[in-house]
Amino acid sequence: MKKLLSLALALLICACGTVTPVPAWKENAYRHLDDYKTSFLTGREESTEPHFVKARREMAAGNDLSILTIAYLTKYSLHTASLESFDSSEFAKLYGLEPNAVDMAYCHFLKGNFSAVDARALPSRYTGVLKAALSKDLTAAAREIAAIDDPLSRLIACGVWVRYLPSDETILQMAIATASANGWRRPLWAYLTKLQTYYFEQNDVIKANTIKARLDLLKKD
């Protein structure tokens, strides 16, 4: 009897499932983009770019420009999260073909053009940070960044602030904590270096040396 009930339950679960098949290119593109994000953040330099190339190839097969634009914006956001500069020429090309206010607002945010960002088009999690950036309110920025749930989004917000506005120990420490908690070596290295410079600038040699020890540890690994 129990067996029969289990079988009926299994069949019911299967019947509830969607029957619409997911296109292979979409599934593969999503997987490769996810792998790219992981490889980039964990500092696996050699395997990072091939994942993006594969993702791009799959997206090209689907010929969906909006998805391809998201892929490039993801790439730029990861560079921003790691305090690195990026070349937005590919996005400009795609935007020329298929303009989208949401994508442009996000790109302006990543490039630090805060006055050009359309706050309504920007993802809601960043609007608080944008307001703080426009008013250059450091306390509000720390509060808004801490309120972001997604660790990668939080790191991106930290990256935008640290790259384009005066640095603050609280924000840098928050970024270091987020990166180290998730094992993201590449941004961790960048923020530790930035914090070390900050301590040196503040003439706090002891803290700077502590950060140097942490960096050496990261280098040995």
């Binding site: 679960i13 969607t18 997911v22 599934e27 593109a29 983009l33 998805i67 997604d150």
Partner: peptide
């Protein structure tokens, strides 16, 4: 996935 039918279409969005 086809048997279970739990696979959803992946959603692409910026982080």
């Amino acid at each position: 996935d086809a048997i279970i039918g739990s696979k959803k279409s992946p959603e692409f969005k910026v982080p």
